[in-house]
Every structure is written in C-alpha cells, then in structure tokens.
C-alpha cells in the first residue's frame, strides 16, 4: 500500500521536491518546493552546465524543506518518484542519483517518471475529479504535444510541433522584443497593454493537428525590422504574437475535441501558466467542454506532478531497479503513434 510518496524533479532549471500523502481515498499535496535558477535569465536561456552545478548545491535543502513542510521524515516515505527524462542530462542525473541513493539507503521503492506524463497528471492534484477520457495539450519550452488520453497510462499523439516548441517561440520572440527570459510571462505582462494589430500568420491553422511556430517567429522578426519605433510597438507586437500562438493552440484543441468527442480538455506545461491562454481556451470552448488548468506552480516544472504520475505507476506494481539511469530522450511509456481515429458516437 502506497500512502506517502516523495517526488523529485531536476529535468531543467528548477530543483523541486514534493510530498503526496493519501488522505482517505484522496491523494493530497502535502508540500511542494520549487527553487528556480534565476541565473539563466542573463543568458536568455538555460545554460546546462550552470543548471547542473546549481542542482548539486540545492537538491539536499530542497528535499529536506519539502519533508519538513509536509511534516514527515524520510522513514515515513513509502516510495520515491523521480524524473528520469526527458530533459537536460546533466540536470536529470543529479535528481536521479540523489533519489536512487535515498531509495537504496532507506530500502524504499523507486520509480522513474517521464516528465511529460507528469504534466498530464498535474491538474488532478488540484481537481481530483479530473479523469480520462480527455484531450491534453502539453505546452512548454521543450514540447508542444496534443494528446488523446482515453485512459490513464494511454496517450495517443494527435499532433506535435514540427519545429519550435510554443514556449521556445515565446522565448525567442521575447528576445526580439527586448523583453526578459523566460519569454512567456514577459510577453504576457506587456501584451495586455497592446492590441492585436499586426496581422501575424496563424501557421497550420485549419490543417491537421501538428503545430509550427518557426514561421511565426520569423514574421515577428520582419515586423520588428519594419517598425520605425520598436519600443512604441512592443506591446502591440507582443499582443499580436501571443494572440497568434493562442489562436493556433485553441484551434487545434477545438479540432481534437471534435474528433474525439471528449467533454474535457486538460492544459499542462509551462506555457499553461498563462492566465490569458486559460481564458482564451475556456472562452472558445465554453458550453461544449470543461477546460481544466491547474494553478501555475503545478504547470511549471514541479515535483508534485512527478510524484503523482509515479504514484499511478507504483499502484500498478511497477518499480524501477537500482540501475535506473537518466535518459534525455526517454521514451514515454504508453505513448502511441499512428493514424488519428474518429471516435464514433462520442467518447470511447
């Protein structure tokens, strides 16, 4: 019986630990600590070696703080769930090695978790009634993935990006506009002062389920070059770019809902921290489906979602052995690729 799970996540530039505790039949979030490495802002992107070095310094205190807040000792933990991939290998290794040593020294169960599966599970920590079948959109700095989730543990790819991830496009465009890093929050914070007047393209809108953001980024670059006063146009360019991205995301999700017939849409990943995206998506799909978006700390890279996804696998009797390794290109267990099927007569 699993009652207490410690989660550890170090796949990129956040060192995170969380404790989940079973309370009656519910899984409660007892603590979540996320330590972000601000240093990467001066580089305009994550520097892998600096991220790895920082994780070594912070992993111990972060895990200890998560245990302290939850009021549990290491001895009370039943299992340890850790992100095994995908991500930056040097960063992943710190969490994996720390978790393996904890598990071996305490003789507790260990489960390696796929980072993106964590993002799909994240909303259930806030909305325990959220359950498949649903359409999931996972959007972050490294991934843009549209999924048909007929059941926990089964994920059918409907569409994915053919070039830049959505979050990556935000980072690059924020750079073009002289805004900070990470780009998503930087663009959102000025976009609300601007208007969508630049008529930017909506790449691949109305065309299948895949995404492409590279051309949109180039369109912003041209608009910046044409602008006689970028400082003056900054808010309007930000608003125009953000609208273009969110229009495409909304359009694809809408098509996925139509194709699957599902009544629920789940948004996850760092880009889903955007209040604007949640509002646009909910407004567009209002009256047709329920749009579930967790609070930002559960959409950012965090250990709570890793513990929750790990809990699912642990309850199925799965365990990682002492040879668990970090894998920057870890295949997602349960991920299916193939032709997109039409669900006749509603949810399957």
């Amino acid at each position: 019986m699993i009652d207490v799970v410690l989660g550890i996540e170090t796949s990129c530039d956040e060192t995170s630990a969380a404790v989940l505790i079973r309370d009656a039949q519910r899984i409660e979030l007892a603590s979540l600590v996320i330590l972000s490495q601000d240093i990467h802002a001066v580089f305009g992107g994550v520097v892998p070696e600096l991220a790895s070095r920082a994780h070594v310094r912070t992993i111990g205190p972060v895990v200890r703080q998560a245990l302290d807040i939850a009021g549990v000792s290491l001895g009370a933990i039943d299992a340890i769930a850790v992100t095994a991939g995908p991500g930056l290998v040097g960063s992943l290794l710190v969490g994996v090695c720390f978790a393996k040593a904890l598990a071996a020294t305490t003789n507790r169960a260990l489960i390696g978790v796929h980072h993106l599966e964590g993002h799909v599970f994240a909303p259930t920590l806030q909305y325990p009634d959220c359950a498949p079948p649903f359409v999931a959109l996972v959007v972050s700095g490294g991934h843009t993935l549209l999924l048909d989730v007929p059941d926990w543990g089964r994920y059918r790819v409907l569409g994915e990006t053919r070039d830049d991830a959505a979050g990556e496009a935000f980072d690059k465009v924020a750079g073009l506009l002289g805004l900070g890093y990470p780009g998503g929050p930087a663009i959102e914070s000025v976009a609300h002062r601007g208007t969508d007047r630049f008529d930017l393209p909506r790449p691949m809108r109305g065309d299948g389920f895949d995404f492409s953001f590279s051309g949109l980024k180039t369109a912003v670059l041209h608009a910046v070059r044409r602008s006689p006063d970028v400082a003056r146009d900054q808010a309007d360019l930000a608003a125009s770019f953000q609208s273009a991205v969110f229009d495409v995301l909304t359009d694809k999700v809408d098509r996925a809902v139509e194709r699957t017939g599902y009544a629920t849409v789940v948004l996850g990943g760092g880009v889903a921290c955007s209040r604007t995206l949640a509002k646009v998506m909910a407004g567009h799909l209002a009256g047709r489906v329920r749009v579930v978006v967790a609070e930002p700390r559960l959409n950012a890279d965090n250990a709570a979602m890793i513990a929750r996804a790990g809990w699912f696998h642990l309850e199925r009797g799965e365990r990682s052995d002492a040879y668990l390794d970090a894998d920057p290109r870890l295949p997602w267990p349960g991920l299916e690729r193939g032709p997109v099927l039409t669900h006749i007569g509603g949810p399957s």
């Binding site: 090695c97 904890l102 020294t105």
Partner: peptide, 19 residues
C-alpha cells in the same frame, strides 16, 4: 569529468540525507 563528479556527489548527498 563534470558529469562523473556530479554523479558521485549527488549520490553521496542522497546517502547522507538518510545517514
């Protein structure tokens, strides 16, 4: 090796978190 050294130190820290 930066990576090799981190593997050793992260493992040591995990052991010492318990012991």
């Amino acid at each position: 090796s930066f990576t090799g050294l981190r593997i050793g130190v992260a493992t040591v820290k995990g052991i010492l978190a318990v012991r």
